[in-house]
Amino acid sequence: MSEKIIDVRNVSKWYGAFRVLTDVNLTVEKGERIVICGPSGSGKSTLIRCFNRLEAHQQGDIVVNGITLHDRMRDVAEVRKNVGMVFQHFNLFPHMTVLMNCMVGPMWIKGVPEAEARKTALKFLERVRIPEQANKYPVQLSGGQQQRVAIARSLCMQPAVMLFDEPTSALDPEMVSEVLETMTSLAREGMTMVCVTHEMAFARAVADRVIFMNAGQIIEQGKPDDFFGNPQHERTKLFLSQILKH
């Protein structure tokens, strides 16, 4: 039996008169790995930011981990502590050490004692393979290391699902692979993941489903083999040809 972690039904969103999302339907089941791709400005970021309510949607329903997101929510934190998010620009807290970056979430949100939070943090820093940087400040790390810390910071909250918004787009080329490797190993361990990314090799290797968005709509989705081997939509073909040219 499968369990829905994210359930999106007929969701639309407007910025003023501009419709960013149009009737989006999507379910993410426990343990599923989903890659979302599409041209710039197609609403990918907006969509996944709706999943932890960094953005509000105006129409339709979004249910995350059994909690319905709506305008009159009292406790968004309840949703957010179960949804990890990794940003394009890492957004580590620069005034805290790497270790503290990973400890504050569990300590302040879940009331975990400091010693235990430290243990968890070190465990996940180990897992992203940078335990030796624990006492440095974020600026002292390379981009790839910072992004891995950001992943560890999210993992420390033991989320039910991880959202990635172009986690490798701001990185120098030689650092992309270390972050992708971390994400791949995470996927192998069964983490539920939604990744916005243009790393097609990663999508092929890891994704259960690839979703293509254009102008605020999901216009095509499928298993990676079908999606890349036999795209149906003209827009998808064009996009893939442009991406794969490089």
């Binding site: 960094l54 934190a77 502590k81 949804v83 998010m85 504050v104 302040w108």
Partner: peptide, 21 residues
Amino acid sequence: DRGQWEASRSIGFGFGLTMRK
């Protein structure tokens, strides 16, 4: 940077905590 707000809020910190810490 806005990203600091977003990171903090996405971990689940409320307004007060985000502001103070």
